[in-house]
Write a protein that binds this DNA or RNA. Sequence first.
RNA 1: GCCAGGAUGGCCGAACGGUAAGGCGCACGCCUGGAAAGCGUGUUCCCCUUCGGGAUUCUGGGUUCAAAUCCCAGUCCUGGCGCCA
Length: 452
Amino acid sequence: MLSRQYVREHPGEVREILAARGVTDVDLDEILEIDEEWRELKARGDDLRHERNEVSSKIGELKQAGDEEAAQEAIERSQELKAELQDVEQRADELETELEERLLEIPNIPQEGVPEGEDESDNVEVRRWGFDQLRDLPDEVTPHYDLGEQLDILDFERGAKVSGGGFYFLKGEAARLEHALIQFMRDVHREQDYQEVFPPIPVNSESMTGTGQLPKFADDAYKLEDEDLWLCPTAEVPVTNMYRDEILLADDLPLKHQAYTPNFRQEAGEHGTETRGMVRVHQFNKVELVNFVEPAESDERLEGLLDEAEAVLRRLGLPYRVLDLCTGDLTFASAKTYDIEVWAPGDDMDDGPAEGGRWLEVSSASNFEDFQARRAGLRYRPERHESADYLHTLNASGVALPRVLVAILEYYQNDDGTVTVPEALVPYMDGAERIEGSEKVGESALGAGDRD
RNA sequence: GCCAGGAUGGCCGAACGGUAAGGCGCACGCCUGGAAAGCGUGUUCCCCUUCGGGAUUCUGGGUUCAAAUCCCAGUCCUGGCGCCA
């Protein structure tokens, strides 16, 4: 959330960022009018209340002096003021509530230096890694969804039967690989001085508002019936809100937390070849990195955070690229974001690299500056005697699991249809170096000739 | 789930219908050869350029001229009982 004072004093800048982000449903003029009117009423209410306070304290004095007549007179005056005050303050309260609600819908201001642009095609590629010495791939790389079914380690059909479209089973070696990846990532981040937390998975509306998922993006999340609880859409929500309405000490910062959680997203209307398989699903695992820092440190920390997330892919030997997101593609709460996209060679897409295949976003590293801190009441005390100030929050995935699994199944694929386990993961797989699949179960497999 | 008690500034803690004591911590000043102690000032948010004013005792309602204080509802905490993987 932007501060009321900032919006009041810099309407021009706010108008510019709304345009740059392509936001059309925020009426800034109306917001400024509401603020103006609220301040007028507030001043009038304050004056009335001042008068009432004076009258009221006089009543106490008169009563104690025993002057009942004068006290009665003052009581009557006080009653008059009360009625008038009620009117003015009620209207002021309504306006203030309205103002707060409107402010919650204004996105963050992009930092200077964020590329201007309308959509993802205007994002700027910062660097590529791993393309200098690619491993030998099969002539035709089988997409992960086909390979996964051949090896019988991914099962989308049964996932849909049990829970619906967009859910899947990981079976055998894929399930094992999933757990191995989680443990591996946790270890990598622990080495980077991340303190681990395991948060609650359902989160309340206040938390969802604190990080910016609410009020605008309610449709993306799963809500529990009859409860003020939502299924965690990203660990950013519980972890950032962990210190909501608290004051941290300057000595506590920078505070780095990592959290593994499952994540749930509705992803309404996203179906097609681009999202086939595990690329866009309703439930997925992720290790999330959340940083709380002093305002002056946040720009530098974003670069560090990005590197910490990239380290996962480098150690897995997976080629990737880094994008600097343009103003039109920034998420609601972010002032600056880098995306990390891993290379998945299985499906050729128009916007993929020259080597073929496609890019899959596995992490967004964002600096939210004080946007979330303001919403969630996250403050720190710069010096012991100074008043508390909003701190800065940042986060990045480190990283989202299903798409990494996709990249592994496709990039580490061998001619014979097996998959080599990335060296860094072998210790987490009890020394297993290769994924060979398992025999299918059930009568349907027999009928399809997949089993003798 | 039931019963009882509780929630006051960064922290501790009083006031229990008359307009929020005191202490600790922290900062600044005075004092001092220097330090400690002592003394003074400050240490939440909002409006107002200044002066100043308003709000704020967990949250929301109510009673009252006046609510930290009384009443109702809720949230959370503590203890006891019950239930439970």
